[in-house]
């Protein structure tokens, strides 16, 4: 299936002339219609930055330094700001972190939906209202709360309203940046299920950004693992979760607390993610890796085929003298 969105070598820089830091280093991925790509990693790995770069809503000192973003065959990284405004909401729907505050507290859910719909589609007020109602049904939001203000709604309801707002102009791509962080666990699972259903039903593509591996395993078709501004492993969800190839992915999976009765000491990844200015040359993970060897310090590994996934790790290079 042809991919709906293709991100090629996307790089983002932060800072002014003197001190420029590379915050995203040649990120590449593609998502097909009806597919959910999970983007996971620690805080600061560059997940949210990737999402913001795609919709070109980077905060001031950060800017796109290179690469392409192709949506439906059109490059959206080089179109004008005005054209980009028509892409946002209409072609790409976005849900941000902290979606509990995503709604303007002074307007009802219905007003905000109608406003968004009418801004993108040539509909009359009553048609827009009808469509807003349809979307509320779609996200399982009780229709009689159409006239409710955000503060009158529970967290889960606000999240549903935010999803409806992001999708009401029927975009092709949904970017959900930590969509469930502020919700409690059962609601998180509901929400992810809802997102997945909507994506498949509407034949959209979705980029699900989260640090919650359990959530991603539930919803994503494929997973991309980010570390220090790079994608270090990418592959089908099952393969990444069950047979991870990159030592960082293994570490991430081992640090999920098990629900078993006897709590053993959790395995942790030693150290912390390097600051942007202090990423080691060669493999960025080399400073924390258990399997590190000479080549890791010398050269940076690109994504290469490793078992069932693609991993940026020299352990999987064909002609490597691996350490014993």
């Amino acid at each position: 299936m042809p991919s709906l969105i293709e991100v090629k070598d996307l790089s983002v820089e932060i800072g002014a002339k003197q001190a420029v830091l590379l915050a995203l280093d040649r990120i590449s991925f593609a998502i097909a219609h009806g597919e959910v790509l999970g983007l996971v990693g620690e805080s600061g790995a560059g997940k949210s930055l990737t999402a913001a770069a795609i919709i070109r809503m980077l905060e001031a000192p950060a800017r796109i330094a290179g690469g392409q973003v192709v949506l439906n065959g059109v490059r959206i990284d080089s179109i004008s700001d005005n054209e980009m405004k028509r892409v946002r909401g209409r072609q790409i729907g976005t849900i941000f972190q902290n979606s509990l505050d995503a709604l303007d507290p002074l307007y009802t859910v219905g007003q905000q939906l109608v406003e968004t719909i009418r801004c993108h589609l040539p509909l009359s007020a009553s048609q827009a209202r009808k469509r807003a109602m349809e979307w509320l049904r779609e996200v399982e939001f009780p229709e009689q709360r159409f006239y409710a203000y955000p503060h009158e709604l529970s967290g889960g309801m606000r999240q549903r309203a935010a999803i409806a707002l992001a999708l009401c102009a029927e975009p092709y791509l949904l970017i959900a940046d930590e969509p469930t962080t502020a919700l409690d666990l059962p609601v998180q699972a509901q929400m992810v299920g809802l997102l997945k259903r909507l994506v498949q039903h509407k034949k959209m593509a979705a980029l699900l950004v989260t640090h919650n591996l359990g959530l991603v395993a539930l919803a994503a078709d494929r997973i991309a693992v980010m570390y220090a501004g790079r994608i270090v492993e990418m592959g089908p969800t099952r393969a990444v979760v069950q047979r991870p190839a990159h030592p960082y992915t293994m570490g991430l999976l081992e640090s999920i607390p098990p629900l078993s009765y006897r709590v053993r000491r959790l395995r942790q990844i030693a150290g912390t993610m390097p600051r942007l200015g202090a990423i080691p040359p060669g493999c960025p993970f080399s400073s924390r890796c258990n399997h590190v060897f000479a080549r890791c310090h010398r050269a940076r590994p690109e994504l290469m085929t490793a078992q069932m996934t693609q991993a940026a790790c020299w352990l999987h290079a064909e002609s490597t003298c691996k350490p014993t």
Binding site: K85, R88, G89, A102, Y107, E115, T116, L165
Partner: peptide, 21 residues
């Protein structure tokens, strides 16, 4: 505010963003 960022991401035009929200 988060809701202004979200309103931008929804593609609301600048004018209604400022005047309405």
């Amino acid at each position: 505010a988060d809701y202004i960022r979200f309103a931008r991401a929804r593609g609301l035009p600048e004018r209604s963003l400022y005047c309405v929200h």
